[in-house]
Amino acid sequence: MVHHNDALESRLYRSYWDDGLLDIFAGAGIVGIGLCWMADLIAMGPVVPVVLAPFWGPLRRSLVEPRAGLVEFSDARSDRNRRLGRWSVWLGLAMLALFTALYFRAGPDPGTFLPLVIAGVPAFLLALLAAMAGLGLGLPRFLGYGAVLCVCGAGVAVAGAEPEVAMVTGGVLIALAGALLLSRFLRMDVESGEES
């Protein structure tokens, strides 16, 4: 019986992510993938989330849970997140396929516009993921992160820089925003625990 008060549940769910740890992980992940690309180790990109994942639980348990407590949301919420995750992947793949098709359709002389846009594609794809996460988690700041990544992608396209520059720049900005949120969370919330 969770449907009777969706507004309250949504508010609680949003506040669950207010500590900024998710933002730091998202930013660090994007920076990591960008750095792998810069070092010509693009194949190592998918390893970055795998390397980061084990830190999530311990950091959340040691920094966030003593202050914010622990809550389990409804199965309906988990199902919704899974559905949104699947949609994000499909949408990302569709966008990637569209850009690839455009690139190859342009033939040997794609002009100047298309290659420029292609340079921004990784950042645009990440912007899409950030926007989907923002919609799914109900966090408007992730829509902002999407906009930041779009700007970085467009900046790289205009400047004729490499795509990974947009990823590293955008990732650093997102991680910094997360660090600000986390420092505010740690300052505002005196560790409470059950015993104190």
């Binding site: 019986m1 202050r67 914010a68 407590g69 622990l70 389990e72 409804s74 409470s192 625990g193």
Partner: peptide, 18 residues
């Protein structure tokens, strides 16, 4: 009770904060 009605379960610290 209203708080607990919209989540599966929550601990003491969470309820304290909310």
């Amino acid at each position: 009770l209203v708080l607990l009605s919209v989540v599966k379960r929550a601990d003491f610290v969470y309820l304290l904060r909310q």
